[in-house]
Each structure stands twice: as structure tokens, then as C-alpha cells.
Design a protein around this nucleic acid. Structure first.
Length: 117
RNA sequence: UGAGAUGGCCAAGGCAGUCGCGCCUAUGUUUUUACAUAAGUGAGGAAAGUCCGGGCUCCAAAGGGUAGGGUGCCAGGUAACUCCUGGGAGGCGAAAGCCUACGGCUAGUGCAACAGAAAGUAUACCGCCUGACAUUGUUAGGUAAGGGUGAAAGGGUGCGGUAAGAGCGCACCGCGCAACUGGUAACAGUUGUGGCAAGGUAAACCCCACUUGGAGCAAGACCAAAUAGAGGAACAGUUUGCUUCGGCAGACAAAUGCGACCCGUAUUGUUCCUGGGUAGGUUGCUUGAGGCAAGUAGUGAUGCUUGUCCCAGAUGAAUGAUUGUCCACGACAGAACCCGGCUUAUCGGCCAUCUCAAUUU
RNA sequence: CGGGGCAUGGCGCAGUCUGGUAGCGCACUUGCCUGGGGGGCAAGGGGUCGAAGGUUCGAAUCCUUCUGUUCCGA
């Protein structure tokens, strides 16, 4: 049962700045993924979609939904890590299909970087 | 059948399955927070731009006046409006129909570069005509038909008239004024009269009429807890009474608030600097100028009556993914306090009414 | 989400209230002064005034609607 509860979202600015300071980074497909180990006992997801990259609120919402859903379906592979997904300027040109496949590639690298203990 | 006009409705394409999210109800577990299961429900016509109007909240009642702002044919609708409806006037179209910041420069002031004689109580460069001098020009007058300048030149056309001309006179048109008729009114029509005297610009100042306090849910309210209610500096007026001489009370003044200013009114220490600490949660938050249906008044916007329904409420912010299938292959685009409008973006589909053309009967 | 400001040569700004000529500094080009550079002097080029409509004879300026950019409010 792959769920996505409130607790699995990163809300506080402290968590975000910790990931930005010491996270590992992978780039590609219009997205940047940062990961770092956490101590809460489950993986967490944080999103940062810039208004500069996607001007319309509708498109920003859509990108965030796609990322959340992809995280939900793949969460069983992750170790206890905090993941932050950032948008890049070129997401404008990608459709939802391309973003999903890009995310799959990112998850693969993340999983090999952080082996489940 | 084709071309067009107007108004209204629908629009994460429809149906079925699987996984997932917010809210809410029920049940169960748990000290609470929560968790699990099931049912219900879950973005828009523009949610957008923030261009207007209102509700709501705070600014002490939001009071009076001034300034400033807004609106501008007339009447009605509305909680209100820069909105809507009906009517008038002007313009566009063959028609249905559409468009219009559409009060007042005969209240005042200002502006109009360059050009031009002159840009507004008119004037005269070239002309035209008359007189004088003189010999094809000079000068004194008359005139504004023609030319020229300009975006714009002080009514238009025709006839009469004249030295040449001119509303100088007449007819028609246009304009102003008056009376009458129709209309609630804007306005329209008829008659009479004036005789050109009122040129443009008010999205120029302004005048007139109506209207308008300011800020915004990050407004505001409540709860709990923590910390603080500290230190330093400067200024604390005038006068009266009492006094145990420390002060106390009253009046005036002053300061501050009432978010443009004044009136009015309320309050009484005020201002500056330094240091310390901080944690948020709840509420406002969706039952409303609400939707739907029927009846009824009205040309209509809309009002009234009855019945019925509850239809997002998040807070780093909920609607997505995937499979099958069908078609005309799917636009613009995401609520954040709530409504009424306007404007802008937009693939298409459906319905109703009307106009024109062709054909057939 | 709410409330403001700004947009003018390559860059930074005037001009907008009060409508008719778009100007200033730096930069650029050419010439001169100098043996050369720097510096100075003189001359010159370069602007759909963010976009589209409207008002006006005439719009950078007035009005309306859009577009970008920037600031403020816990």
C-alpha cells in the first residue's frame, strides 16, 4: 500500500536548508534532485517549484502533483532520506510523460547512492 | 440550402476499473494528538487582471464643514456601482442589428507650434472696384465674391442687387429665441420671429447636478505558554486653592489620537536610546444580496410568493497517475474572506429568436 | 493573497503635473593638440519614448486596456 501522508512532506525551512547545505545532487530532464540522510525513520519529500520557471499556477500545481505521485509509487525503494526536487528553467518545454521518465531515472541514482540499511 | 445578427446553456471529452490526496460523517482502537475501515463530497466561466461597487472588520460614534476624488443625454432596476434594462439623439450597415466619456466654451479664464494679412470685440498679402496724381505705376478709400496659408478663416446653395461686393434683400436648408402640441423626462413636431450675433478645445482649468471618511482577512478577535513589565538620557508650561512643605486638587495652555485639513471631541506624562526574550495555535472560514423549480407583476433589467436543496474550505496549501474502450482527438486555465459587475484569454458543441439571398411548392 | 512604484539612445537619468523643439552625463565615431599613450578641444552618428486603442489639428505627455519589471505588508 503506497501512501503519501502529511508527515512525509517537508514543511519547515530548517529541513530545507539542511538539504541545500549538505545534499547530494543530480540534475537532468528539467529537474534537480537533492538528497540527504534523515533521522525520522521514513523518506520525506520537499518541493520547490519556482514561479520564474512556470508562470501559471495551473502548470506549477500539475508539476508538483506529478512529482508527488511518482514519489508515492517509488517510496518503498528509498532509505530514510530527505529528498528535495527543484524545478529548472527548461521544464517549460517538457510534457508530463518526459517528466515522469526523468523522475524514474533520478530515483534510480538516488536508490544506488543511499542503500537501504 | 447558404450568408449573417442577437441572446442563453455546456465545457479537467464521455463511460468503466485499479492506486492515491483534502474536508466531513459514522464505527473501532488510543490518555490525547492520531491511526484504521466505510459512506458522502471536492475548482472556474473566466477562479485571472485588480478596473469599479458593496458586505464584513478595525480606526472613539463615522458627526458637520473645506479641500481633493469620481460620475455625466433621460427614466427605471439594484445592497451599490464607472454595471444592467428601456427610451431619446448622433453615426455605421442592404436588413436583422451594432457603436457612442453623449451636460455646459450665447458664466468666466486659458490654449492653438509652424505657416498666414488675420487664430477671434476680426482683418486685408494677391485680387476686384472708385477717386486723385501720373503714365502703366504711386497713393486715398470701398469690398471680402475669387486666389493663397493652415487642422481650422465669422453660415450653405440659388436669384436679385451693386462701381465692385456683402444677409444688403428674398426663397430653401442650417442656427438661435418664443409660443403651442405630444411625452414623467431626454426629446420630437408645428407655427411665428431674429438676421448671422453665438468658430475649435472641458480625456484644458473650470461651472452646474449627483456622489464620496481611511485602510484592508497579512483586517481583526480569542486562547495557552514563555519572556519582559528593566536601565539610561532629555523635556515636563501658566495660574488658583489646600498643605504636615513631601505633595494633592481644579482651571487654562500644550502634546497626542480620531490616518488630507478645520470644527468638534477624547486622553494625560511625553520623546529618544540601550539591553533581554519570543512559539505558536484557534478563530475569522463559509447558509449566502445562495442555487433549482413553479406561479405571479412588468416591454425589460428585476421584484414578490410558494416549494425544495446544502453545493470546496485548503494553510508550504487537497483533484493526480494508470489500464481498457468510444468519438468530432479535447482551448483558456487552479478557489485562498465573500458577493455584484467590467475587462482580458479561450478548442469547440447545443438551443432559441430574427434578417437577407437562392431554389422548390 | 493584498497594496504601491517604474518602463525614454549601449548604460544611468531629465522632460509627463502645464500636449507642438525629445535633452543631459558616461560610452561610440571622426579630426586636431602630443614623438606615442593618457588627457583635453571641436564636430558627428545613434531613440517604434514598453504594446495596442481612443480624445485632439497635433500625444513621450491626457484617458482606457494589456505586457514586463521592482518594492512593501506575517
Amino acid at each position: 500500500m503506497a501512501k503519501f501522508s502529511r508527515a512525509m512532506r517537508m514543511n519547515s525551512p530548517r529541513d530545507f536548508s539542511r538539504v541545500f547545505r549538505s545534499g547530494k545532487r543530480t540534475v537532468g530532464g528539467g529537474l534537480t534532485v537533492l538528497t540527504v540522510e534523515n533521522s525520522v525513520g521514513y523518506p520525506r519529500l520537499g518541493l520547490a517549484v519556482a514561479k520564474k520557471h512556470l508562470k501559471l499556477a495551473c502548470h506549477r500545481n500539475r508539476l508538483k502533483r506529478i512529482i508527488r505521485d511518482s514519489f508515492r509509487q517509488n517510496q518503498s525503494d528509498f532509505a530514510n532520506i530527505d529528498i528535495v526536487v527543484l524545478s529548472r528553467a527548461e521544464v517549460k518545454q517538457r510534457d508530463s510523460e518526459q517528466i515522469r521518465t526523468a523522475l524514474e531515472r533520478h530515483w534510480l541514482t538516488v536508490v544506488t547512492q543511499w542503500q537501504k540499511s
